[in-house]
Design a protein around this nucleic acid. Structure first.
Lengths: 225, 225
DNA sequence: AATGCATATCTTGCATACAATCGACCGACC
DNA sequence: GGTCGGTCGATTGTATGCAAGATATGCATT
């Protein structure tokens, strides 16, 4: 039997990331308790956990809300992500196993295939593979605190989770970064790996900020489940 | 009326940092509720907050414990602290006001006076001034997420809070770092400020690791309140 | 005598009842 | 007519009762 707080936490987190609870949306404890079939106690605990991850903000006696991020917030978040992912890549370079790098190369191939234009293109599949790819790097960094901080900064609404904003050039650049990162890690060159990772994150930041400034091809709001 | 969870949280945190609850010590909810005069609910919430800050570790159905940090943990923590404090110093360089730098210089003078050998020496007072000094830098960094991450990493048992381990040379070096950091910030030179800050943190790490390897002059265990 | 299992007890996890606080609405007064 | 104050409603914060899981202990069995 899993704990109710874990179910509520996972459900709430997924709902926020999928846009079920829009930014600025109110999160009443009783309402969420009803939706999840549990009582307010696990809901409260889940909300507090999400608060420290930055996914919700709670005001004393006034409940929890989904924060709507300003462009300055996004700037801040990506700067932090660059810093932390870069440091993780550097640490990983001297700790990762060849087997892990092999898997990363394999993932590169799969991502490139899913990114190829045409009927076979599957941008959601890329997101999955991408998550595993970066997960390997973080795991190889072997720093529980660094990883937990990364989780607090990476998994934010509309920060990641989708490659739909990426142009063909963006996708090609991302793929090149992935290949190069694997090469740097295989060479056990921490500085190289860190540099590539920083570029990778900054490129993602550029894509996002471009989309925020001109919210035309943005499809996150239209998601319903 | 302040919330009970805040009282419990502050009390518990202070007790852990002061060594009232030694590393490895068990933290029963009912026991803590009795000590703080509240019920288990605020205690639970406070424990969860402390968990994400790394001050306690909770195992499902098995309660909370104060984690005892291995030398590898300390290594990891100081690496992260170097990274984050360095980044904060860099951001602060282009955002800090001259008034804040003036105050930092003032604090430098006060710390140097408190560090001077003799009857006037007051190492605990240095800790206070030092906290304000670095607080100014963090505030000037103007990044709520960066600051919260720093708080999660800095305020750990036996990481800071005391200058009793510092030799006269260590104290002199620390003072020099502080003066230089103020100068770098006044010059609005982010790279300079970051470099000094990284050196400052690494120097502190060296002092701590030296003390851990040869736990002779360590007085944290003997504290009772 | 040692090991495995069952049980007993203690602790945490969850649910619900009660209290405190905040915001909104309405009325009175200026 | 506008503004200030009070009361009401709703929501969060706290306390406590109950259930489930985990560890420890003791007994039976090999």
């Amino acid at each position: 039997m899993v704990r109710a707080v874990d179910r509520v936490y996972a459900r709430l987190r997924a709902d926020i990331l999928d846009g079920v609870h829009p930014p600025g949306g109110r999160l009443g404890e009783a309402e969420l308790a009803g939706q999840t079939g549990s009582s307010r106690t696990p809901v409260r605990e889940a909300l507090r956990r999400l608060e420290v991850e930055g996914l919700v903000e709670v005001l004393p006696h006034r409940g929890a809300r989904v924060p709507d991020l300003t462009p300055e917030d996004l700037e801040e978040i990506y700067d932090l992500r660059m810093l932390l992912e870069g440091a993780a890549a550097r640490r990983a370079a001297t700790r990762i196993t060849p087997k892990d790098v092999d898997r990363m190369d394999e993932l590169c191939g799969l991502m490139e295939r899913s990114a190829a234009p045409g009927d076979g293109q599957d941008l959601d599949r890329i997101a999955e593979l991408n998550a595993e790819f970066h997960g390997i790097v973080r795991a190889a960094a072997a720093s529980v605190r660094l990883v937990s901080m990364l989780n607090a900064v990476v998994q934010l609404p509309l920060v990641t989770r989708t490659f739909h904003r990426y142009s063909p050039d963006d996708l090609a650049r991302s793929a090149a970064h992935h290949r190069e990162l694997a090469a740097a890690l295989r060479a056990a060159d921490g500085t190289w790996a860190e540099s590539v990772m920083r570029a990778h994150v900054l490129a993602a930041k550029a894509v996002l900020l471009r989309a925020v400034d001109r919210p035309g091809n943005d499809d996150t709001e239209t998601r319903t489940s």
